[in-house]
């Protein structure tokens, strides 16, 4: 077998594995939908608890033509992206600061980890009073939580950057700033990405759950509203839209990972 036919075989087999994988993902969704249809059609569960799938699809259509889907999706997405963007920026900067000033960092880090365990909602009234009833209480509060995993992971990534790589920079006469940008940050990048993966999940959960408590728009607010008005299909419509939105946000981070980690590992 020549090298080139081997390469082609390899490539086809890669496509094949990838196809099987994708098929598996689709099959999972189909299976869940099938079980859903079976259970609801058989009448084992009342329509008031779990509506039939076509009713939910109809509800999405009705809501879309009433102009309710896009504005709410957009405002939730805006809040998630904004708090995630703040989390990435502030997280990387503060993680760098923790690394640069290890003594002060050591005093702060345990508290950062502790904030994880406090439910966000308890701070909501304070933020509401400070910022008023608009996007900011939700965004700022969520940003606090999206920042922490990125901050801690950036710190750990910088901390574990191999000394020998830094020495390569020194021996090629790079300045400290160049070593940070060209060596330390890329070396810490896989850890930063791991933080971002956690962070985006916290971001989605934070924004949607805070929308339940007090917001005039957003998918969380809509789910809450249709729950209170007993419009179950519309409620499910927004639950499913929320799942898709969450999937999209996580997918965004994975895409960043695939693009920036090419060739590594």
């Amino acid at each position: 077998m020549t090298v080139s036919t081997m390469m082609i075989r390899l490539r086809t087999s890669q496509w094949w594995t990838r196809g099987v994988k994708t098929g598996g993902y689709v099959a999972t969704v189909v299976a869940v939908a099938a079980v859903w249809a079976l259970v609801t059609d058989a009448g084992w569960i009342s329509d008031q608890t779990v509506p039939k799938l076509p009713d939910i699809v109809d509800a999405i259509g009705t809501l879309a033509s009433a102009g309710e889907v896009w504005p709410n999706l957009a405002s939730t997405l805006f809040r998630i992206l904004l708090s995630f963007a703040i989390g990435v920026t502030v997280g990387i900067a503060s993680g760098g600061a923790l690394w640069r000033f290890p003594r002060a960092g050591g005093a702060i880090r345990p508290y950062l980890s502790a904030i994880y365990s406090v439910p966000l909602v308890v701070f909501y009234p304070i933020f509401l009073v400070v910022f008023g009833l608009n996007d900011w209480p939700v965004v700022v509060l969520t940003a606090v939580i999206t920042t922490i995993p990125i901050c801690l992971n950036t710190y750990l990534g910088l901390q574990s950057a191999p000394q020998v790589l830094i020495n390569v920079g020194k021996s090629l006469e790079r300045t400290s700033a160049q070593i940070f940008r060209q060596i330390l940050l890329p070396a810490a990048w896989p850890a930063v990405l791991a933080g971002m993966r956690l962070s985006v999940v916290y971001g989605v959960a934070g924004v949607v759950s805070l929308e339940f408590v007090a917001a005039q728009t957003g998918v969380g607010n809509r789910i809450q509203y249709y729950y209170e008005t007993f419009d179950v299909p519309s409620m499910y419509a927004f639950i499913i839209l929320t799942l898709l939105l969450a999937g999209g946000c996580v997918g965004l981070v994975l895409a960043v990972e695939v693009l920036t980690m090419r060739g590594r590992r």
Binding site: V164, N167, V168, E173
Partner: peptide, 21 residues
Amino acid sequence: TGPSRRLGYVFQEESVFPWRT
């Protein structure tokens, strides 16, 4: 007096940057 381009150093450990070709 310190590290310099004129003193090329091949380290014992693996020293290539994994994010570069």
